[in-house]
Amino acid sequence: MAKQRIVSTSINGNPVEFLAAPRQTLLEVLRDNLDLIGTKEGCSNGNCGACTVIFNGRPVDSCLVLAVEAEGGELETIEGVAPTDGLHVIQDAFLGQAALQCGICTPGFIMSTKALLEENASPSEDEIRFHLAGNLCRCTGYDKIVRAVQQAAEGVTN
C-alpha cells in the first residue's frame, strides 16, 4: 500500500490528527480509524447521503472526499451535534415526529438538515425537499422527515 500521510484537521471542535493512505476516503477513516461510526455507509459512491458530514460549513458525502483532503479543514459529524446536556432541536424534532424507522439514514439527514437550517432558518417545504433530495430514505416516504425539519426550523427560529 502507498505511504500513509498525517492529516491535521478539526472534528467536532477538537483538533484531530490521523494517518491516512491516499486511497482512503474520509468515510473510511472516520469509521475505521477514528471510531466515529455514527456516519453511515449506504453506497460509497455519493448517491445516498447516509455518510453526510459538514466539511468547512457545507454538507458533503464523506465517501466522495479523500481523507487527505480534510487537511486543515473543519469537520462536523453526527457525534458533535448534541450539546452535552441533551439533544439538538433537530434531533428532538426527528424523535418527536417519528421521522425515522430503521434509522440508518438518520445521521445523514440530521447533518443535511443542520446545514440547511444554518443557511436558511425558515425554509419552505419545497426548499426542504429540494435540499434533502441527496439523502435517501427507504423506510419513511419522507413525510415525517419533512415534518421534523419544519418543527426543527421553528425551534431554530424561536
Binding site: I37, G38, L87, L95, G103, P107
Partner: peptide, 23 residues
Amino acid sequence: TRPIRHDGTDKVTGRARYGADIK
C-alpha cells in the same frame, strides 16, 4: 398514543450500532 421510541436517542445521535459498526 405516540411516545418517543425507546431506541430513538441512540439513533439520532449516531450511537446505535448497526451491522458494519462491530469492532
